[in-house]
Write a protein that binds this DNA or RNA. Structure first.
Ligand SMILES: [Mg+2]
Length: 231
DNA sequence: GCGACAG
DNA sequence: ATCTTGTCGC
């Protein structure tokens, strides 16, 4: 898949020269570019799932594309590269956007929407990994996280499909969705070009028998398989 | 100073 | 995220 050539994403993943003020500045800049309404093929025909795993100083990124209707696997790609940035809460994008961009570039099919294993705007600077990736590559993204980073919410009822709003600083930054009974809920937020309403619809429609939506479940399984195989 | 803290 | 076996509950 051809990536946006325009270089509106600075490379700040060099630890030696990393500057936290510059990083926050970039996050605020990205937040301003996030599009909160729908601007993608809706309903989508294809959905991608993205995830990254780590093993021996290496990062392994996987991208899978499923048919939106039957959730069958259409394509899957993987890449590996040296870890270039440590994990620091609120700075996850500086660790994962690089490998994710690399694997997306290898895709032959251009997915209509991407599910990312991270938050979108549900971030202290409204610039989580899903938003950072979406704005940088100009692709529609949805953030799907297993735990909250910021915000307050009421626990959704213990029934599949129920959800509550995630609020932060008097703003709605996402939703807390129960994707499976007796399982902890997932945190859904706009990444880029997908409204919260559509994000919820897409996550619900791509979640079948398990807690996670199929694209992310498959991407996660594959990324672990790849990391233990290619070591 | 203390607690929270995506992957 | 990663390191890991058994164990509890639907
Ligand atoms: Mg992950």
């Amino acid at each position: 898949m051809k990536l946006k050539e325009k270089k509106n994403f600075q490379d700040m993943t060099n630890l030696k020269t990393f500057n936290i003020e510059k990083a926050r500045e970039l996050q605020r800049k990205i937040a301003k570019k996030v599009i909160l309404y729908d601007d993608f093929l809706n309903p989508p025909q294809t959905v991608a799932g993205l995830d990254v795993s780590y093993k021996n100083k290496k990062a392994f990124a996987v991208a899978v594309i499923l048919d939106y209707k039957n959730l069958k696997l259409l394509e899957n790609k993987s890449i590996s590269m040296d870890i270039k940035f440590p994990y620091i809460p609120t700075l996850l994008s500086f660790r994962e956007v690089k490998p994710l961009s690399a694997v997306i570039e290898k895709l032959e099919i251009k997915p209509d929407v991407f599910l990312v294993d991270a938050h979108g705007i549900a971030h202290p600077y409204f610039s989580g990994c899903a938003s950072h990736l979406g704005v940088s590559l100009d692709i529609p993204t949805i953030g799907v996280a297993k735990k909250k980073l910021v915000g307050d919410y009421n626990n959704p009822a213990n029934k599949k499909g129920t959800w509550t709003l995630l609020k932060y600083q008097d703003q709605i930054i996402g939703a807390v969705l129960r994707t499976k009974k007796d399982c902890k809920p997932l945190f859904i937020s706009t990444g880029h070009k997908v409204s919260l309403k559509s994000a919820l619809k897409i996550v619900i429609e791509t979640t079948k028998k398990y807690k996670h939506p199929e694209p992310l479940r498959l991407a996660h399984l594959l990324t672990k398989k790849v990391s233990t195989t290619k070591k």
